[in-house]
Design a protein around this nucleic acid. Structure first.
Length: 271
DNA sequence: ATGCGGACCTGTTAGC
DNA sequence: TGCTAACAGGTCCGCA
């Protein structure tokens, strides 16, 4: 489900409900996610105040008194703010109950998500320490991509989806950005000019920012923390549009597979 | 170092 | 109608 815009939409939705509140209780119903939820999470979090709610790539970071809770939504995770008395549904794995009777509830059918605790600077956590720059930051630009791509032979689409290169660009937005930049998704990363990398960096920023403004992309089941869907799907140029007409030239879009991921592009507009 | 494929897990849908 | 296979928004890990 969630790429960076959906995670950012979630962050903005939950932050005002969490900020400054104390954890009353943590209820874990299913600890087997991508990695097991720590056994003693209730003891660790109880009584702590949630000070800030940050995002790094697709990771959500709940900064507390003595450490940071690291959350990842995987492919199918979602977070809602609900009264703690709301009946539990299938795949509701975790509740963080607050001092005001509300709770942050994690649902994740596929269980590719993660909930981890660290006492140190989360940037130095094993899962975060090798992440590339934030795509919306100033350090991420065409020169950076060009420099990192020299000598690389993998497909440009796989390159921009590599979290060590840039964090948070997933399958939907990689497809969309490459269309906007007019770059064929299979082109070798090392064979793209500096100028075209400038266009690609701009396209990535543009598409992520637009998606955040629309509240993310709802394909099947993404909803923000208030239950509302995201509307960026209406503006997708290529994703899940196999055989439909290109918005630029009208020719039929194509679907192929790159690194086991569905890839959509226009044979005419992308080179 | 680089690049690829497998692994994790469940739900939905397309096809026979 | 019912069974089976393919596919889905992620990403770590191990192997060549």
């Amino acid at each position: 489900m969630p790429e960076l815009p959906e995670v950012e939409t979630t962050r903005r939705g939950i932050a005002p409900h969490l900020q400054g509140h104390q954890v009353r209780e943590v209820i874990v119903r299913q600890r087997q996610l991508r990695w097991p939820i720590p056994r003693n999470l209730n003891a660790l979090l109880r009584g702590q105040t949630i000070e800030q709610i940050d995002r790094r790539g697709k990771y959500l970071l709940l900064g507390m008194d003595t450490g940071t809770l690291i959350l990842h939504l995987g492919m199918s995770g979602s977070l809602r703010i609900l009264p703690a008395t709301t009946p539990v549904q299938k795949h509701d794995h975790l509740d963080i109950v607050l001092d005001n009777g509300q709770c942050l509830r994690l649902r994740d059918p596929r269980r590719f998500g993660a909930v981890l605790w660290t006492r140190k600077d989360p940037a130095r956590h094993k899962l975060l320490q090798s992440l590339g720059p934030e795509p919306l930051s100033d350090e991420f630009d065409g020169d950076y991509l060009w420099q990192r791509s020299r000598g690389r032979k993998l497909a440009i689409k796989s390159f921009v989806m590599d979290s060590k290169i840039v964090t948070g660009v997933g399958n939907i937005y990689a497809n969309e950005a490459l269309f906007i930049a007019g770059i064929h998704p299979q082109r070798a990363a090392g064979r793209i000019s500096r100028e075209r990398y400038q266009q690609l960096a701009v396209a990535i920023k543009q598409v992520l920012e637009a998606a955040i403004r629309e509240g993310g992309t709802t394909l099947r089941d993404f909803t923000a923390s208030d239950g509302k869907p995201g509307y960026f799907r209406l503006k997708l140029h290529v994703y899940e549009r196999d055989q439909e007409p290109c918005h630029q030239c009208g020719k039929a879009l194509r679907q192929i597979v790159i690194a086991q991921r569905s890839t959509y592009y226009c044979q005419h507009c992308q080179r």
